[in-house]
């Protein structure tokens, strides 16, 4: 095991059509670490993700990663044309990896959906299926772009619990973009607050007291406190709690 981070962006700047999107951003994710990217709309979060995934080239700076780093990516949205008949199992089969389709689906708790059409999934189901596809490759790094969008509050809690459990089990690094500050903070090791540049970053407890963070988020979250709850149980997709073993607990 190497000591170097799984992936690291150094002094990343991005200009698109003369507009500055990102300026001198430093970010890294280590093995087993959960890094959460927060920031207002238009802060450049998705662009930063694209730079790290090498889907775009930075104007300045560089991205380095482990050689042969396997990345599992969960995109922000998925729109499949209604004329494409695609089952969940077929969707997962568009990639290949050591984890079988039934195993990946079971891992995220939607084993029963294998034969459902992709277009017939609810918001929460779709997010889990996307996560299952990312897991198929047994990734070293999971990149999740707003994993809980389109999911109701109850489902969001479950989803973040699931992500925490995956991290504990697979020992992979996780980089995610999120708006759900209250829910996300407790399960995160490092928060990076982005608004074109990195305003502040560090452990959630310290970041929430940072003046720039407060300035950015006091409208959205008037009484921001780190919401910490004991992960002594989990939930199935339908809701009822399941007791976890002690060593599986996330926090």
């Amino acid at each position: 095991m190497s000591q170097s981070p799984l992936i690291q962006g150094t002094q990343l700047s991005l200009c698109l059509r003369d507009k500055l999107i990102l300026s001198q951003v430093d970010i890294k994710v280590a093995k087993g670490e959960i890094v959460t990217l927060v920031g207002p709309n238009g802060a450049g979060k998705s662009c930063l993700i694209k730079l790290l995934l090498r889907l775009m080239l930075p104007t300045k700076g560089k991205v380095s990663s482990w050689p042969k780093l396997k990345i599992g990516y969960m995109p922000q949205k998925l729109q499949i044309d209604a004329t494409l008949p695609l089952s969940v199992a077929h969707f997962l089969n568009l990639t290949s990896g050591p984890i079988s389709v039934p195993m990946a689906l079971a891992e995220v708790g939607v084993a029963s959906l294998a034969n459902r059409a992709m277009q017939a999934l609810s918001g929460g189901e779709l997010q889990r299926v996307l996560l299952a596809r990312a897991l198929r490759r047994a990734p070293d790094l999971l990149v999740l772009d707003e994993p809980a969008q389109g999911v109701d509050l109850m489902g969001q809690n479950e989803l973040y619990d699931l992500i925490a459990r995956i991290r504990a089990k697979q020992a992979c690094g996780i980089l995610m973009v999120s708006h759900d500050l209250n829910l996300v903070m407790a399960g995160t090791d490092t928060v990076v607050c982005l608004n074109q540049h990195v305003c502040c970053s560090g452990h959630p407890e310290t970041v929430v007291h940072h003046p720039q963070f407060k300035a950015l988020f006091h409208h959205a979250v008037p009484n921001l406190a780190v919401y910490k709850h004991e992960h002594d149980h989990s939930h199935s997709v339908t809701g009822p709690p399941i007791q976890l073993d002690k060593d599986e607990t996330a926090t």
Binding site: L78, T95, R137
Partner: peptide, 17 residues
């Protein structure tokens, strides 16, 4: 066929894979 179908479904996801 398979890579084309994959990028039809989601180009960025296919690229990362």
């Amino acid at each position: 066929w398979r890579p084309l179908l994959s990028l039809t479904v989601h180009a960025d996801l296919a690229a990362v894979e």
